[in-house]
Design a protein around this nucleic acid. Structure first.
Lengths: 156, 156
DNA sequence: CAAAATTAAATTGCACACAATTTAATTTTG
DNA sequence: CAAAATTAAATTGTGTGCAATTTAATTTTG
């Protein structure tokens, strides 16, 4: 009775969820850029600052767990934040392998200038707060699915 | 009567739509990686091939419009695809400014090996096809919103 | 306790993204 | 038609992402 519409997955670009994600993510980063330029931050640097404003004194490893980034990405990024005078990096005396990241006063103060950014972006989406939250939750579920079911299970 | 829940946008990482997008997009790319490794393609290279499999003989500019990428990204990527023997690049005689990208037989043949990839990925999402399509459409609307309302309008 | 295994950062190398500039070809305009 | 403006790629430079390796510190184990 119902229209049998079982279209198999195609190779058409515009039908790919992956491309919609890729394009939307880059569009979002581009939308942040002019706002972050005013704070002299890149988008990934902004994410690091969000984490540190929530909880200061994390290690590189803990930052990486929060953002799903490894030391190959974080180490040079954090060096740039340090050079900009926003953070401090120092080895933990309790475990010299770990590097603790702490906010400098400048970095803590920068938070004030960032408070208006989320609302500024949200206003451009033409979506209700509920829709935004729902979309965010869907994306988080999606990422969790992808991260928790790797192609090759590491057989125990 | 209804619970007044008008939470203002916060700076908490886990409440940001932008981070959900950023994380989901990278998780998606990581999920493609093992499948694309078998074809010796990176994810952006795969997107270029998707476009060319749909319509051959586009210029760098047309490819860029389709993927929202500029020549700074595409030129070296296309050189690598050419080096891999998948495409051919040559100036248009009708307009020597333009470079036309054409599939090599190898590049055309690679399509067969790619046909199973979308279904393979879709199966990992634990979402119905309808849900996937709906999410894709929402993301496309979101990207369109962000791309069509730049922060600084270029005053005509 | 010393050798082996593990762990955390850093480093190296490659491939994007993207702003800004350059080069070359075409189109517009005075 | 020639100079000016525009356009398309390429180039240059910076900053991610991420795999793979290296270095140094800690933990585990025989």
């Amino acid at each position: 009775m119902l229209p049998m519409k079982n279209t198999p997955p195609s190779l058409l670009l515009d039908e790919q969820l992956c491309f919609a994600l890729y394009a939307a993510s880059r569009a979002m980063t581009s939308a942040y850029r002019p706002l972050l330029d005013a704070l002299d931050l890149t988008y990934p640097q902004y994410l690091v600052m969000l984490v540190l404003w929530e909880r200061d004194g994390l290690t590189v490893r803990e930052l990486g767990q929060r953002l799903h980034l490894d030391s190959g990405t974080l180490t040079p990024l954090l060096k740039r934040l340090q050079l900009a005078g926003l953070i401090d990096r120092q080895r933990r005396s309790s475990d010299e392998r770990e590097v603790e990241i702490r906010l400098h006063p400048n970095g803590r103060a920068l938070r004030e200038q960032a408070t208006s950014i989320p609302a500024c972006l949200a206003s451009r989406l033409c979506l209700s707060l509920e829709d935004i939250q729902h979309l965010r939750d869907e994306l988080n579920r999606l990422a969790a699915q992808l991260n928790h079911s790797p192609t090759k299970e590491t057989e125990s």
